[in-house]
Design a protein around this nucleic acid. Structure first.
Lengths: 332, 332
DNA sequence: TTGTAAGCGTTATCAG
DNA sequence: CTGATAACGCTTACAA
C-alpha cells in the first residue's frame, strides 16, 4: 500500500500549484477550462480524493450530517424498528452527494463537528435542538418541528392518514370506531388524535370519551387499551391505532377475547411495518413512505448546507391506505 | 455564541504551553499530576473539547468507526429490521469511549477516514473488506468472518440455537421436522443449516431431502417454502425456520392451508424480532441478543484501535430459546 | 517535566 | 487565471 496521494502530488502531476488544484477540484469560478481538465485527470490518475479531516480544518465543512434518533416514540429500541428504514434512506441519499451520516448516540455527545443534523424521535423542545442551533448548524426534523430559524421539516401526512382510515371503516359500515392514540406530546401522536376527532365529528359518529384511549405507540400500550375497549358495555366495532405495533397487539387482545379480528372487530394500524403484512389476519394500515421520508430529509439537509440563503423547506409526505384482512364490513 | 475555545485558550488559562495541554488531556505519561489537574480544570472551565478534525490531521485518529450494513441477509431494507437494534447498541457503546459511528451507505464511498470498521450483512469475501484492510484499518465482522489479519468476529451461537430448537420440538414429540434455511453462502444461513442436519441425525430423525428447503431469510421465501412443505405427501409436523421473517410467513401459509399453526404444525423461528411476540399464535423462537452483539462489536472495535498488538477477538454470543404458542405437542 | 517548532492536507487571501 | 503563503487546531519529535 502506497501512501495516500495529497494535493501536492496532484499539483506536481498537473504542473500547477496546489492552490489551483484546490480551486479546480472544488469547481471554483476562476480556473481555465484547460487547467481544470488537466487537474481533474491528474487527480483521477493518482486516485486522489481530498482528506476530509484536512478539508474540515481549513474550511469548516466536514461532509458529515449528524443523525439523532431519540426515543420519544416509545422505548428507544422501539424507535429503531420504525427508523431503521428511514436511516437507510438517509444514508443512501447523503452518499450521493458526498456526505456521510454520523449516528449520534444520545445527547451530550456533540463532540464531532457536522454540517447539518437530522433529528427524529425528539420532542419539539428537546434541548439538543437548541444546542445544535447555537453552533449555527442547520437542522432537519422528521416529525419534529424545531423551533429555531434554520430548520427544515419533513413529516408524513398524519391527519390525512387518519382520515383515510376512518373513512375506510365508515364506508365499510362501521359506526362505533375507537382510537388508540400515540403519545400526545409529539407531532405524530397529537396530529393523528386530532384528525381522528375531527373526522369522527365530520362523519357524525358518536364518540364517547371511552373510545379515545391514550397509548404510547408501544405494543404493550396497544394491548392494554384494547382490552379496556373490549370490556366496555358497548365495545367499538372498529379500532384505529396510531401505530402498527399497537394495532398488532390489538389483534392479539381481540383473539384472546374470543373474538375474531377483522370479522368481529376491525383494526387499522399506522406505519405499515414489515410485520403488518405478516400478521394474522394481515393488518390494514396507513403506509408511511419511510424511504421517501429519509430521502427528503437528507435532501433538505444538503440544501440547507449548500444554499444557506434558501428558506428551510417544510414537506409533508403523502401516506397511503393499505387494505388487508383486518378490516372488514361493519356489523351495521 | 462565542467562538469555540482552542487548545491555545486552555494553555493560556492554565499557564502552560499547548504541548503540555495536549499531553495532559491525552493522558500521556510525562505530565506532573499538578499540571495535569490544572489543565483539566482550565479545559473544563472553558468548555473545551478537542476538534476532531484537527486531531485527525495531526494524529491519524479520527474517533470514527465506520459501520457498513450490507444486504446479504436479504433485500437491504430487510437487513435493517434486524440490524437496527444492533446499530443502536453499537452507537451507545462507541459513544461511551468517545467514538462515533459513521454509517457507510454502500461500497465505494470510503471517502472519510475512520479508525475501525464494523461490518454486518456482508459476504465473507466482499471486496469492501479487502479495501478497508488495505488501509490498515482493523475490522469487526458481525456474523462475517473477515479473511484479513486484524479482524475480530462477533456472532450468535447459530448452531446452539438450532440445536435448542430441534431438541425442543423433539421433546414435544415431533419426529417429522423440516428446516427452511437462510441463504447458504453466509455464516448465519450455513451454520444453522449444518447444525440442523447434525442435530436431526443425532436424534435419529428421518430427514427426507424434501424436508430441507432453501430460503433467503425473507418472508416471501418462507411463505413459498412452507407451501411446498405442506404440499408434501407426508408433511412435517414441525418447522424450524432460519429467521423470524420466514417463520412468520410460515404461520400465514399454515393458516391459509386450513391448518392451525402451533396445534397442527409447530413453528420455531430465529431472531426474536419484536413481531415474533405479536404474532398469532405468538412465535416460539431463538432469541439473538442484538444488544449484546452490537455492544461487543463496538468494544472489539475500540480494542482493536487502542491496543494494536492485542490479538483480535472471536466472540460467540449465547442465544436463548423463547417458547411461545407456535410450538406445541407433536401428534406422535 | 515542560516548551519550541515542525508538520498534517486543505482552503483562502493576496498579490501578480 | 494562477501562484505564494498564511492560517486551521492539534500531535509529536526534539530540546531544554
Amino acid at each position: 500500500m502506497s501512501e495516500r496521494p495529497t494535493i501536492h502530488d496532484v499539483a506536481r502531476e498537473a504542473g500547477v500549484s496546489i492552490a489551483t488544484v484546490s480551486r479546480a477540484l472544488n469547481d471554483k469560478e476562476d480556473v481555465s477550462l484547460a487547467t481544470r481538465e488537466r487537474v481533474r485527470e491528474a487527480a483521477r490518475g493518482l486516485g486522489y480524493t481530498v482528506d476530509p479531516a484536512a478539508r474540515a480544518l481549513g474550511s469548516q465543512r466536514t461532509g458529515l450530517v449528524a443523525v439523532v434518533v431519540g426515543d420519544n416514540a416509545g422505548p428507544r429500541d422501539l424507535s429503531v424498528i420504525f427508523f431503521g428504514k428511514v436511516l437507510a434512506a438517509i444514508s443512501r441519499r447523503l452518499g450521493q452527494d458526498g456526505y456521510e451520516p454520523l449516528l449520534l448516540s444520545e445527547r451530550g455527545d456533540l463532540g464531532h463537528r457536522f454540517d447539518a443534523a437530522i433529528v427524529i424521535g425528539l420532542d419539539d423542545d428537546d434541548p439538543l435542538i437548541g444546542e445544535v442551533a447555537e453552533r449555527h448548524v442547520p437542522l432537519v426534523g422528521i416529525d419534529v418541528r424545531c423551533p429555531v430559524p434554520r430548520a427544515a421539516y419533513v413529516g408524513s401526512d398524519h391527519a390525512g392518514g387518519v382520515r383515510l382510515a376512518v373513512a375506510h371503516l365508515h364506508a365499510l359500515g362501521h359506526r362505533r370506531i375507537a382510537h388508540i392514540a400515540g403519545a400526545a406530546n409529539i407531532t405524530a401522536g397529537a396530529a393523528r388524535l386530532e384528525a381522528f376527532r375531527r373526522e369522527a365529528e365530520r362523519l357524525g359518529l358518536q364518540l364517547p370519551d371511552d373510545y379515545v384511549r391514550t397509548g404510547d405507540f408501544s405494543s404493550a400500550s396497544g394491548y392494554r387499551e384494547t382490552c379496556e375497549l373490549l370490556a366496555l358495555a358497548e365495545p367499538p366495532t372498529a379500532i384505529v391505532a396510531a401505530s402498527d405495533l399497537m394495532a398488532l397487539a390489538a389483534l392479539q387482545a381481540i383473539w384472546e377475547s374470543g373474538r375474531r379480528p377483522g370479522r368481529d372487530v376491525a383494526v387499522v394500524g399506522f406505519d405499515d411495518l414489515e410485520a403488518a403484512a405478516l400478521a394474522h389476519p394481515p393488518l390494514t394500515t396507513i403506509r408511511q413512505d419511510r424511504q421517501e421520508l429519509g430521502a427528503l430529509a437528507a435532501t433538505a439537509a444538503i440544501e440547507l448546507v449548500e444554499r444557506p440563503d434558501a428558506p428551510p423547506r417544510v414537506t409533508v409526505v403523502p401516506v397511503e391506505l393499505v387494505v388487508r384482512a383486518s378490516s372488514a364490513r361493519g356489523d351495521r
